[in-house]
Simulated assay, not measured.
Amino acid sequence: MEPFAYNLDEADIKRERQKARELRTSQWWKRRCAKAVCYYCKKNIHPRDLTMDHIVPVSRGGKTSKGNVVQCCKECNNNKKQLLPIEWEKYLARIDLQA
Rank of each mutant, 00 (worst) to 15 (best):
L23P: 00
Y40L: 09
R94N: 11
A99R: 14
V56C: 04
V69C: 01
Y91N: 10
R48G: 00
P3V: 13
G67F: 00
K90D: 09
D49G: 04
E10K: 14
P47N: 07
Y6E: 04
Y91A: 12
V56F: 08
V37M: 10
K14Y: 01
Q71T: 14
D96T: 07
E89Y: 04
R21W: 06
I45S: 02
Q71C: 15
N44K: 13
Q27H: 09
A20Q: 12
N44Y: 06
S26W: 04
Q71K: 14
R15D: 14
E75F: 11
M1H: 09
V69H: 00
Y6S: 08
L83T: 05
Q98H: 03
N78Y: 08
R17P: 00
C38W: 09
S59D: 11
M1Q: 12
W28C: 01
P47Y: 10
R17M: 14
D9E: 08
Q18H: 06
G61R: 11
V37Q: 12
E87T: 07
D12T: 11
R31V: 01
D12K: 15
A36N: 12
N68G: 07
L97F: 06
N79D: 08
T51L: 02
L8R: 12
N68A: 05
K90P: 02
V37F: 03
F4L: 15
Y40E: 04
N7C: 03
R17S: 11
E89C: 04
T51N: 06
Q27E: 15
W29V: 11
R15K: 14
K43M: 06
A99I: 06
K43E: 12
Q18Y: 04
R48F: 01
Q18T: 08
V37Y: 03
K90S: 08
E75K: 14
C72D: 04
C73R: 13
K42P: 02
N79L: 12
R32Y: 02
R21C: 03
D12A: 15
P3C: 11
H46R: 10
C72M: 14
S26T: 10
Q98S: 10
W29T: 08
Q98E: 06
S26I: 01
E89W: 04
G62R: 13
C41V: 09
C72N: 06
R15Y: 10
Q27C: 05
E2T: 09
P47D: 03
K35W: 01
K42W: 10
G62M: 13
K81W: 11
